[in-house]
Amino acid sequence: MRTFIKLFLIYFLFLSFQAHAVLDIKITQGVEQPIPVAIAMFGWSQAGSVAPIDLAEIITADLARSGRFSVMDAKDLPQNPTQFDAINFNDWRKLGMENILIGNLVLTDSGNYDVSFRLVDIYRKKQIAGFRIPAKPALLRRIAHQISDIVFEKLTGIEGAFNTRVAYITVKKNKTKKIHTLHIADADGYNAKVLLKSPEPLLSPSWSYDGKKIAYVSFEGKNSSVFIQDISTGTRV
């Protein structure tokens, strides 16, 4: 049975910080016993051509970055099954894997895509989760993050936050002044966008409830004031 799930953008407050480089979020310590999981390469419907995106690579990076999973390196995978019946459970057990994610990316006649996946418990030989998600080309990366959220929640019992965006502030010095820049980006740092540049300090970016605006503190005029910026237009409201 085909199950469709809707895309939801989850927005959250990301504490502002000062930096001199692009956004680089690092997890330096994980849990004592991370969950072993393997992410197989997704099948691609157009043989002889390269898939437009490596979904497995994005999901692997998401889960590894969380610090809660021990994700098998792609080069160490004993096989790349794309269907449940193709999983060699004995091989995976010997390698200490507890779960495996398999999936397929299919190009439809409309030019859009169908992304299907299954999260499988290797020891019980049972599917934990499985969905088919229709997606437009521009949303494929977001779909990968959404799959990461599903895997994270199913295996930890905690809601995932990979399909989110962050707001952050950087400060760059030149010879005569500092430039303060307000950015937004996906949780993994991709799709970064500059909302505002200012010679005066910017602080404390905070998302609106609907995720369409960001409030922040600016010291324009040498006094602190709170402003609200519309994300889609880049204008103050």
Rank of each mutant, 00 (worst) to 15 (best):
Q127T: 15
D109L: 12
A38H: 01
F17C: 06
K26A: 11
L15S: 13
A21D: 08
P134G: 06
S70D: 07
P36Q: 12
N80Y: 07
R68D: 13
A61E: 10
K94N: 11
D54F: 08
I122M: 06
K126F: 03
K26W: 06
G103Q: 05
D54K: 14
D54E: 12
I102Y: 04
L95S: 07
D109T: 07
L63G: 01
F42P: 00
T82S: 07
I35E: 05
S49D: 11
R68I: 05
F89K: 05
K136H: 08
M72A: 10
D76E: 13
V120S: 07
F117E: 04
N90R: 15
I87P: 00
V37S: 06
M97C: 03
I35A: 03
F84C: 01
N104R: 15
K75T: 01
A47T: 07
D91A: 15
M97I: 12
P52R: 11
Q83S: 06
S110T: 07
V106K: 09
D73H: 09
N104C: 04
A38I: 01
L23V: 02
R68K: 15
G30E: 11
Q127C: 09
A74S: 09
I133A: 06
K125Q: 10
S49T: 15
D121E: 10
D62L: 07
D121T: 03
P81Y: 13
I133D: 03
V50M: 11
Y123L: 12
Q18L: 15
S70I: 00
L63N: 00
I27P: 01
Q18Y: 13
I27F: 06
Y113W: 13
V37R: 07
L15N: 05
F42K: 04
Q18E: 12
K136C: 02
V115F: 05
Q46C: 09
V22K: 14
G48P: 01
L23D: 02
V31M: 09
V115T: 03
D85Y: 13
K136T: 08
R118C: 08
I58F: 08
F69H: 05
S110D: 06
D109Q: 12
H20P: 00
I100P: 00
Y123F: 14
Q33T: 11
Y113A: 09
G103T: 00
W44D: 02
Y123K: 12
I128K: 14
K136R: 14
L55S: 02
L23G: 03
F84H: 04
R118K: 15
K136Y: 09
L101K: 05
L107K: 11
G111D: 10
E32T: 09
Q127G: 11
T60M: 10
L63S: 02
I133V: 09
I87E: 02
A19I: 08
W44R: 05
D109N: 10
